[in-house]
Design a protein around this nucleic acid. Structure first.
Length: 128
DNA sequence: CCTGTGACGTCCC
DNA sequence: TGGGACGCCACAG
């Protein structure tokens, strides 16, 4: 997505490795709080956009999606552990991120049912 | 300033 | 159980 290049627009050093949650383009720390919440999801578990939004507060599920979409490639933030409320991997308009995500989740031992969904009762992370 | 878009979610049928 | 209609709202152009 074009938004991934927003770091350049933010005036961030392009070659600096991205680990910490960079601020949103508007400069407020909301994205940082979202990333911090995602970072708490342990390996082998998943959470949802809506759940993250509720934990962070004062933000919508859509915005969580925006924050994750803005993550640069190679980020330490485990964006792949965030799926939608149905237990599905949300579709992307561009790129092949969905396949990446499925592969990463499988690598963590997460199983998909015959319809490609994840059992949230089993793998969902519901702790602050 | 206005408009279209989207890594979402809830309701309703 | 599934799909469409909305609501929502930050961003980009």
């Amino acid at each position: 997505m074009a938004r991934i290049t927003s770091s350049a627009a933010n005036g961030l050093k392009p070659d600096q490795p991205v680990e910490d949650p960079w601020n949103s383009s508007s400069g407020d720390p909301l994205y940082a709080r979202i990333y911090a919440s995602v970072l708490r999801i342990p390996r082998g578990r998943v959470s949802t956009y809506g759940y993250i939004a509720r934990v962070v507060g004062e933000c919508s599920a859509r915005q969580v999606g925006y924050a994750l979409a803005a993550l640069p490639e190679g980020s330490r933030v485990p964006w792949h552990r965030v799926i939608n409320y149905k237990g599905e991997i949300s579709g992307r308009k561009h790129g092949s991120g969905s396949n990446d995500q499925r592969q990463r989740l499988r690598a963590e031992g997460i199983a998909f049912d015959f319809k490609g969904r994840i059992n949230l009762q089993r793998y969902g992370w519901h702790r602050h």
